[in-house]
Amino acid sequence: MSTRIPTRRAAGPAASRTGRLLSWLAPLLTVGGLIALWQGYVRWHEVDPIVLPAPTDVANALWRDRELLLTATEHTLLVLLLGLVAALALGTLCGIALHRSPALRRALEPLLVGSQAVPIPILAPLLVVWLGFGLTPQLVLVVVVAFFPVAVATRDALAGLSPETALVLRNLGATPAQRLRLVELPGALPGILTGVRLAVVFAVIGAVFADATGQSATTAADPTSSGGLGRIVADAVPQLQTDRAFAAIVLLVALSLALFWSLGGVERRLDRRSSPSLPI
């Protein structure tokens, strides 16, 4: 029997390099193709740029309004990062609490799920009424929407501990704190990170709504004051500057992707590392 079964590995490093290239090329091609279609459609049918600006118009707006967009991006990024860090801390703590106490789980579950059922467009202006303008209501909104996936992921990941390992820990006389630090959290880390990655998507939506409702009164006179990208979208559409609104959306998408991918990178690095453990 000398038939060789072709395998991926047998194809050698050259093949894996093409594979890697393809994995980069594929998303570029789909996105590029879509943009080309869009451009062609708008030009062919001579669509009014107020209704649908062509990709070149959007690119133009990106450059033309770069200062306005840059400050807005900075603002949104700040809200997102602060909100995500807070959501990670609160979500992890909440997940640990839910894992530890079945009574607490029963008590909090309706509240947690309920908090996710409240529509963001309704919650956003209410938070402004309660907390005033500024960063606080925006952060609160991001945390409210982003902490839920983190809490659920943490709870599920912590529940993944095998009963045998639990027996060993009991036999060793490990304290609950040791159990958490040495075994449960390191084991749950990948799961928690997946939760954070999901939370990014929710957080961006939360940040945009918070922004859009937050400061219309103050930013009407001076649009560059302290609004984020959501503010720009909300203002640009009634001002018939659709290209600017699209430019802001492009930046929002780029922000989400950058956050999503860098968290994916952290996850992969953690996976490659010999053994995840806490730096304690």
Partner: peptide, 10 residues
Amino acid sequence: PQRDGLMPWA
């Protein structure tokens, strides 16, 4: 314990 009780990720 039966079935080793190791932490597979570690």
